[in-house]
Computed example of a mutant assay.
Amino acid sequence: MIYLDYAATTPMCQEAIAAYAEAAAVYFGNESSLHDVGTKAKQLLTLCRRELAAMINGEAEGVYFTSGGTEANVLAVRSLVAARRQNGNHLITTEIEHASLHHLFKQLETEGYRVTYLPVDRFGRIRLEDLERAITPQTILASIQHANSEIGTTQPLADIGRLLRARGVLFHSDCVQTFAKIQLDVKAMAIDSISVSAHKVYGPKGVGAVYIDPRRHWSPVFRGATHESGFRPGTVNVPGIAAFITAAKQLYDRMESEQAHFERLRRRLLDAITVKQLPITVEGHPDYRLAHIVGLTVNGLDGQLVMLECNRAGIAISTGSACQVGQQAPSRTMLAVGKTPEEAKQFVRISFGMATTQSDIDELVSTLEQMILPQKGGWTG
């Protein structure tokens, strides 16, 4: 099987597997325990906090480990909003956030908060003037993703951060798709909080992290929680965290070469689509985007059908965010960039990883060509 769905999840790298095994065998203690076995686990956890903080130019005391990206998003936003509730009840986000945040903001609306959902242009980018106009004296927090998981478009975080900080609005960003892939600097970007996830960077599933600027006050979502400085309950998954940070550091250290590899693969795919004159539209921003995520509208074919036919040919792709697969409604991202519901259902996502080769891209293009141009002797349904 040719795997081209790395934006959904990645396989654990060998270094992460080895780190997990060693940590589970040697650092098995509860890091909250006061004996030497617990202290040993706590020391490893402290080292992991420092490593993660260094990768985002943050402070170790601002790192809180979670069970994944979804919990990271929910706890970050809720804990920051709760601490500033007395200052206002207005929140800002975008129409194309990950499902975990979209559903959270819908829930917050039922709890007395007002939410502004910023529109995006046809490339999936917000307009800074829309953000500035949306801010009111009651605005306490804005949550704007770093990159969209379906089309790869990135937002201008530094510009957004400067604007929000000047207006006294807290800034959270979902960085699950970008962490360890493109440079993140929470200080230079004026970000107050970010969320990241292990299984997007060749680490284990069920592990993630929140970073909150230590200068920002937050209020615990779970009253009485004692783990992670009261940020969340439950014994900390030290082996999983060790595997997460090991994988992330491996990816972070080869960030430049990985991006160059992805750019070559992307160019090969897009050139082939052009040369073969396939009726496929490339979605997302041509410049401000992740190299490894390619959103495509296969004109005239349902995305679900394209995905299933690729699967039959031994190629794994997706029809969008894995967190929304199986839903009948078309992609919110596609609708937000101006597609009709029918057009939105023609969307598929290709995403590369470290093991993706040029021959994988060639095989994908050949499969798409047979599907789209049956008169040439290919797929006939």
Results as ranks from 00 to 15, higher is better:
3 Y>D: 13
4 L>G: 08
6 Y>W: 15
13 C>T: 04
17 I>N: 01
18 A>Y: 00
19 A>P: 03
21 A>W: 03
31 E>H: 01
39 T>L: 10
43 Q>M: 01
46 T>F: 02
49 R>K: 15
62 G>W: 08
63 V>D: 03
64 Y>I: 03
64 Y>P: 01
68 G>M: 11
70 T>P: 01
72 A>C: 12
79 S>L: 07
81 V>N: 10
83 A>K: 08
88 G>T: 00
93 T>C: 10
93 T>W: 03
96 I>N: 02
97 E>I: 07
101 L>W: 00
103 H>A: 13
104 L>H: 11
106 K>D: 13
135 I>F: 08
137 P>G: 05
139 T>D: 02
142 A>H: 10
146 H>Q: 10
149 S>Q: 13
150 E>R: 05
154 T>D: 05
164 L>V: 02
173 S>A: 12
183 Q>K: 14
186 V>D: 03
189 M>D: 14
197 S>C: 15
199 H>C: 06
200 K>S: 13
214 P>Q: 05
215 R>M: 06
217 H>K: 14
226 T>E: 13
228 E>G: 02
228 E>H: 10
230 G>A: 09
234 G>R: 04
250 Q>M: 15
258 E>M: 15
261 H>C: 10
263 E>M: 14
264 R>I: 15
270 L>T: 15
275 V>M: 09
277 Q>N: 11
281 T>H: 07
281 T>W: 09
291 A>F: 00
292 H>E: 15
292 H>I: 05
294 V>I: 15
295 G>T: 13
298 V>I: 14
299 N>A: 13
314 G>W: 00
317 I>Y: 05
322 A>Y: 12
328 Q>K: 09
332 R>Q: 12
338 G>A: 13
360 D>A: 00
363 E>R: 14
368 L>M: 14
373 L>A: 04
378 G>T: 00
380 T>K: 08
